[in-house]
C-alpha cells in the first residue's frame, strides 16, 4: 500500500497552484498543513481524481491512479471541504445512495449504512432529512460516507471546520481508530486537531512541499526557537511588534506571550516545550515574511 506523488504540478493558466511535489505515503495518518491558498485542496483534489495534474505522476503501488480509474476509486474514501448533500434525503437514504455509488450491493449497503450510522452516532436521526442536520451532524455523515467502502486511502479536507470542541474530539477519536491499516490524509489548518493523531506532518506553502517529517521530529526541531515571556502592562505596541508574538497563553494565573525567535528575546524569557502550533507559526507566520 503506497501512494507516490512524483514531481506533481498544477497550473491554472499562469497561476501556480502546486509545483514539483514529490512524496511517498505509506500506512498512517498524515497531517497536511498550510495556510489558505497553499495548494492543499488542489493536491487532495488530484489524489481524489477530481482534477488532473498539469505535470507529474500519481502512482498507487507503482500504477498511475488515473489509468487505474474504477479500481483506484474502489478503495478511495474522500470527504471534501464544505461537503454538500441532497437535503431532501434522510441520512440513511443518503448513505444507501452513496453505497450504490461505491458499488455495494443493496443488501450489503443497508448493512454498511446501519454500521456507519452507529459509528458516527447518527443512528437516532437516521430517518431525518439531512437538510435539518446541524453542521456537526453533517460532518459526521460526511466521514460516514467516506468510510463506506472501507477505504485504503482516506482523504479528509478540513473535516472539523465548524464543529464544536466536543464534536471535534469525537471526530478525532474516530479518525484515530481508523488510522492503523490505511493511509489517511488529513488536510486542515486547525493545528490542534492533528497534533495528537497524525504520525507525519506535511507542510505546504505556495504550492510547494516544504516539510515532510515525523510529528515528533518536526516539533523537536523547534527546540530553542520558542519562548514564553510574562505579559506586562507596560509593554508598548512597538515592543509587541518587535517581539513577533505568535500566541498569548495563560498558565498559573499569569498571561504569557509565546514568541518564535531564533534568539532569546528577553532575559526573562523561558523556553517552553514546543508544539505543532509553534511549527505552524514558524513556517507560516505572515508577519514574519510568510515564515521560514
Amino acid at each position: 500500500m503506497k501512494l507516490e506523488l512524483k514531481n506533481l504540478s498544477k497550473f491554472y493558466g499562469k497561476v501556480r497552484a502546486l509545483e514539483g511535489v514529490d512524496l511517498t505515503l505509506d500506512k498512517g495518518i498524515y497531517a497536511l498543513l498550510g495556510p489558505n491558498g497553499a495548494g492543499k485542496t488542489t493536491l487532495i483534489s488530484m489524489i481524489a481524481t477530481l482534477i488532473r495534474p498539469t505535470a507529474g505522476k500519481l502512482l498507487w503501488d507503482g500504477r498511475d491512479i488515473f489509468e487505474m480509474g474504477e479500481e483506484y476509486r474502489s478503495f478511495l474514501g474522500y470527504m471534501p471541504q464544505n461537503i454538500s448533500y441532497y437535503k431532501e434525503f434522510s441520512a440513511e437514504m443518503f448513505l444507501q445512495y452513496m453505497c450504490e455509488m461505491k458499488g455495494l450491493k443493496p443488501r450489503e449497503g443497508r448493512g454498511r449504512t446501519t454500521e456507519l450510522l452507529k459509528l458516527v452516532a447518527l443512528e437516532d436521526v437516521a430517518k431525518r432529512k439531512v437538510g435539518s442536520f446541524s453542521g456537526g451532524m453533517k460532518q459526521r455523515l460526511g466521514i460516514a460516507q467516506a468510510l463506506i467502502n472501507d477505504p485504503k486511502l482516506l482523504i479528509l479536507d478540513e473535516p472539523t471546520a465548524g464543529l464544536d470542541p466536543k464534536e471535534r474530539i469525537r471526530f478525532r477519536n474516530i479518525i484515530h481508530s481508523l488510522g492503523e491499516d490505511r493511509i489517511i490524509i488529513y488536510c486542515t489548518h486547525i493545528v490542534p486537531d492533528v497534533e495528537h493523531i497524525a504520525g507525519r506532518v506535511l507542510l505546504l506553502r505556495r504550492g510547494k512541499l516544504i516539510k515532510n517529517n515525523e510529528m515528533g521530529e518536526l516539533i523537536s526541531q523547534m527546540q530553542g526557537l520558542v519562548w514564553e515571556l510574562p505579559l506586562k502592562e507596560q509593554v508598548s505596541e512597538e515592543r509587541m511588534e518587535e517581539l513577533a508574538i505568535s500566541n498569548i497563553t495563560q498558565h498559573g494565573g499569569k498571561l504569557y506571550m509565546r514568541i518564535i525567535s531564533e534568539e532569546q528575546p528577553d532575559e526573562e524569557a523561558l523556553a517552553p516545550e514546543p508544539c505543532l502550533e509553534d511549527v505552524y507559526m514558524y513556517f507560516f507566520n505572515e508577519s514574519q515574511g510568510e515564515g521560514k
Binding site: L50, E70, Y78, S84, Y86, M101
Partner: peptide, 18 residues
C-alpha cells in the same frame, strides 16, 4: 447545483456511468 459532484466523481461508479 447540489455540489454533489465532488462526492460522486471519486466514487466507484464515477461520473461517466452516472
Amino acid at each position: 447545483i447540489s455540489g454533489m459532484d465532488q462526492l460522486l466523481t471519486p466514487s466507484v461508479t464515477g461520473r461517466k456511468r452516472i
